[in-house]
Nucleic acid binder design. Sequence first.
DNA 1: CTGAGTACCTGGCAGC
DNA 2: TGCTGCCAGGTACTCA
Length: 333
Amino acid sequence: MPELPEVEVVRAGLAPAVTGARVLAVEVMDPRALKRHTPVGEEPGLGGHGRTLSAETGRGRAGDFERRLTGRTLTAPLRRGKFLWIPLAPDTARPGVPEGAGGPGEHGGPGDPDTALLAHLGMSGQMLLRATDAADDRHVRIRTWIEHPEHGELRLDFSDQRLFGSLALDTLTPTAPAGSIPAQAAHIARDPLDEYFDDAGFVTAIRSRGVGAKKLLLDQRIVSGVGNIYADETLWRARVHPDTPGAAISPRGAVALLHHLREVFDQALAEGGTSFDEQYVNVNGQAGYFAHSLNAYGRGGEACPRCGTAIKRVPFGGRSSHYCPRCQRRKSS
DNA sequence: CTGAGTACCTGGCAGC
DNA sequence: TGCTGCCAGGTACTCA
C-alpha cells in the first residue's frame, strides 16, 4: 500500500509533467473516486463517508469537479504524510460566471482562490502519466488531459482498484510556521522528512500515551506517513515490541525510534518504494524495489535477519504485525 | 478526551 | 468446475 515513500515517489514523478501544465479536460468515470470532494456550497461530508454515494449526489460531485478543474493551471505538487496535492494557479481566465447552468452563488469571485487538487491513494490508488493515445489502464476512475508548455499533451489517470483513495478539490489553509495545506489534511502532523517536523513534540507525544508503540506510529496526528509496513520495519530496526506502551519508552528510545523511522523512509525512497503485487507503482506504472529490503513485514515464519529467530505474525486490529520475538522484547510501564 | 467498532471497496484465493 | 465467503488496507465516521 502506498505509504510516505511511495507517495513521495509519485509526487516527484508528477512534478516535471504537471508543474505549469493547463487542464484541458476532465472526465470522472466513477464518482466514488471523489469521496473526499465537497462541491461548492455543500457541507463537507454530506453524502460522503460511511454512506454509499447516491447516483444523483455522485453526478453532482462529478460535474462540480470537472467544471472547477477544467481550464486551471497546475503548480508544483506537494506532500505531507500520505496526502498529495497540486495547488492551482490563481484563476485569471474566469472572472465570474461559470459556463452552463452552474449552481446558484457558485464561482462568485475570481474562480477558486487558494484551491488545490488533492489526492489520497488509499490502499490501491495510482497516479499514472500516459500519452494521450495510450491504452487504458485497469480501474481508471478519473481521467485528466493536460497540456504542458514543454512536454505537450498528456493524460493524468487516477486509477484505484479498491476505491479507498480519492481525488478532491480542497481549500488551502495556512500552516505555522510556513506553508499551507488542504483543509481536510490539516489535522495530521508533519511527517518525519518535513524540515519543520517537531522532534521534541514527537518524543513527548509518544511518552505521554499508554497505547502500544505500533499504534502510536500509525497515529497520523503524532507523525504522518507511516502505515503498516513501515511501522513494522521501524519497530524491528529499533528493537521495540509493537505492544510496548509509549509511556515505557525512554526519551532516548523515542529519539531512536524517530531515527530508525527516518532511516527506513530514506532507504525505501532510494529504492523507489515498496511494491508487492500490482498495488503500488510510480507514475510510469513501474514497481519499486524496497520489498526486497524488508526485514520483518510479510516475513512471518522466516528467520530474523539479525538473530535467526522465526519472525512472528500476530493479528493487529484487523491486520497483522510482524516482529522478532527475540530482538523485540515487550516492555511494560 | 480516548478507545472501540465499523463502513467504505474489489479482486484474489481458500474452501467446499 | 463453479460457487461462496473471507480478507487486506487507511481513513474518518459514530458511539460508549
